[in-house]
Design a protein around this nucleic acid. Structure first.
Length: 563
RNA sequence: CGGAGUGUAGCUCAGGUGGGAGAGCACGUGCCUUGGGAGCACGGGGUCGCAGGUUCAAGUCCUGCCACUCCGACCA
């Protein structure tokens, strides 16, 4: 491709209001442009990268036995009403009406659509298994789109859905998808983790996330270097060391004027934070309350709490709600509580701890479960953090943040039951199909790759997804030898199948160097002042190594670039 | 959805207390120049986010709305 004829609108300055490297560089280097919040245009370079990522995904999905389809973006509300998601999905679902006033939605995901297709066309176990995927634009009216392609309202996703006759078979399919995902993210050159994840509202038996390690990512994970345990903190388990037994001391009420937070109490009473218990009052699905006890040095994991309660939503009670329950804010207590009390396992062998006294300005010290109050049980409500013992090997866990680029779920029968997607098994009985679903954020991957592959001058594309493999810069196109040599190298490279961009623009050398650094093509040949000695210069974007290349050795060199 | 900020030329931005719409870069023409965003000259380019209000007079003051960005909540 000739740069003089390719639309690459690079920017000299960082766009205002744009913060993170991938967003800045994708715009500055002319890969994307913003149309509206969370809605982007893919320019020629951006589209080339997108297509290369898509092809890698297709190769491995096809290789794992999945088949590609393309489902409608526009989906009738009736399907969504069957599974209840017309109501549950809320404001995130883009809704519209046709001329007959019938409700439709722009697809944010396609469980309903694919399940409908399968139930209409599958009768027998002989028709199964099936595994479909598509690469398509999705729509979600996010409350807060951000960071360019990382969280958009319109984005490109690879979504896949599998249908098996038994859970045993479904797990095999799931494992095959897991393998395919490993191949995809490895081939994309990403530094990523596969972590155990919470299934969330989508339901199902279990799920794994594929998370690209980036600083300030929105996914928080813990992992173990020793045994390779890794999990999203929402789902992460951790080992608890047993505490030694203690002699029970007499319960005592103490005056703690204006002292509310764990930190303040710990200082005021000179007691470590891990002997202070937080009593957190939660509102459950807007129709009940529960008090949850957890050690003062730990964070409660609301996902674990919601899962335990089988609740859709839990949130801390507001000041008004506490008042209506007669609970003094900051002094909530399990002693004298008239709402159900659950305790985190951190209280299981803890003795003589501090709790609120259910009375302003007072706490109890030397409190003990069973003697001073009763609970419904001990459960795992703690949030794993750096340094907690690994649940498998008990060595300290590490914490990192990342960007979720893939998520796979073993769904089970959630959608097949809701939509009557059944098959007749060998025994002649009708059974619901066992489903799995598998997502990859394709457009988000572009940003993820740039987040992991850039420097202060621009993007450094991995070979597999670079928009071009070789960039030829003719520094002065008015020098006839230079431009002629440029085109000769360009023709040879093209003949070898090397995707090449020739910078034949009549602009200053400085602008060409700035642009090529920004765009980030892996290999570069510069045709400049050494041409009269029969040499051109090679530069690698990644290592920024340079050397002079004899024109006579060019063929060998191009072969090595082609690899 | 809560909180904060921004909105003036294609881009980045400046425009105390109300009175001429500006700079740098970009763009066009010409000259000059060609190894890290060159130089000179001339030139084109504006609904100052939108609507209303105050005023003799509003980019500037007031009210409402919209858009975008950031923090948080949310996120199959």
């Amino acid at each position: 491709m000739l740069a003089s004829r390719l639309f690459i609108p690079t920017l000299k300055e960082n766009p205002s209001d744009v913060q993170i490297p991938s967003h800045i560089y994708l715009i500055r280097a002319g890969f994307i442009r913003s149309l509206s919040a969370g809605i982007y245009e893919y320019l020629p370079l951006g589209l080339k990268v997108l297509r290369k990522i898509e092809e890698i995904i297709r190769k491995h999905m096809d290789g794992a036995g999945a088949q590609e389809v393309l489902l409608p973006i526009l989906t009738p509300a009736s399907l969504w009403k069957e599974t209840g998601r017309w109501d549950v999905y809320g404001k995130e679902l883009f809704r519209l009406k046709d001329r007959k006033d019938t409700d439709f939605a722009l697809g944010p995901t396609h469980e309903e659509t694919i399940t409908d297709l399968v139930r209409k066309n599958v009768r027998s176990y002989k028709d199964l298994p099936l595994n479909f995927y598509q690469i398509q634009t999705k729509f979600r009216d996010e409350a807060r789109p951000r960071y360019g392609l990382i969280r958009g309202r319109e984005f490109i996703m690879k979504d896949g859905y599998s249908f098996d006759v038994s859970e045993e078979d479904a797990v095999k399919t799931y494992d095959a998808m897991k393998e395919a995902y490993h191949k995809i993210f490895s081939e994309l050159g990403l530094d990523y983790l596969m972590v155990e994840a919470d299934v969330g509202a989508i339901g199902g038996k279990f799920s794994h996330e594929f998370v690209v390690k980036v600083p300030n990512g929105e996914a928080h994970m813990v992992y173990c270097d020793n045994c390779r345990y890794a999990a999203n903190v929402e789902a992460a388990k951790f080992h608890r060391h047993k505490l030694p037994p203690e002699e029970l001391l007499p319960l005592q009420k103490v005056y703690t004027p204006g002292i509310k937070s764990v930190e303040e109490i710990s200082k005021f009473l000179n007691i470590p934070e891990n002997k202070v218990i937080k009593t957190l009052v939660y509102r459950v699905d807007e129709d009940g309350y529960v008090a949850v006890l957890i050690r003062g040095d730990m964070e409660l994991n609301e996902t674990k709490l919601a899962n335990h309660l089988k609740a859709l939503e839990v949130r801390l009670a507001t000041s008004q709600e506490l008042e209506s329950l007669g609970i003094p804010e900051g002094y909530a207590s399990p002693i004298g509580s008239n709402i159900p009390i659950l305790a985190d396992r951190s209280l299981e062998d803890l003795h003589n701890f501090v709790v609120g006294a259910n009375e302003f300005d007072y706490h109890f010290i030397n409190t003990n479960v069973g003697r001073d109050f009763n609970i419904e049980g001990f459960y795992d409500f703690g949030t794993a953090k750096e340094g907690d013992p690994c649940p498998v090997c008990h060595l300290p866990l590490k914490e990192t943040t990342g960007l979720e680029v893939g998520h796979i779920f073993l769904l089970g029968t959630k959608y097949s039951k809701a939509m009557n997607a059944n098959f007749v098994d060998r025994d002649g009985k009708e059974k619901p199909i066992i489903m799995g679903c598998y997502g990859i954020g394709v457009s988000r991957l572009i940003s993820a790759i740039v987040e992991q592959n850039h420097d202060d001058r621009g993007i450094i594309w991995p070979e597999n997804v670079a928009p071009f493999k070789l960039h030829i810069l003719v520094l002065n196109i008015k020098e006839e030898d230079a431009i002629k040599t440029g085109f000769e190298i360009y023709s040879k490279a093209k003949a070898l199948g090397i995707d090449t961009l020739l910078d034949d623009r009549d602009i200053s050398p400085g602008m060409k160097f700035k642009d090529t650094d920004l765009i980030g093509i892996p290999h570069r040949i510069v045709i400049g002042k050494t041409l009269k000695e029969g040499k051109v210069e090679y530069q690698s974007r990644k290592e920024s190594k340079k050397f002079q290349l004899d024109l006579e050795d060019l063929d060998n060199f191009l072969e090595s670039v082609k690899r």
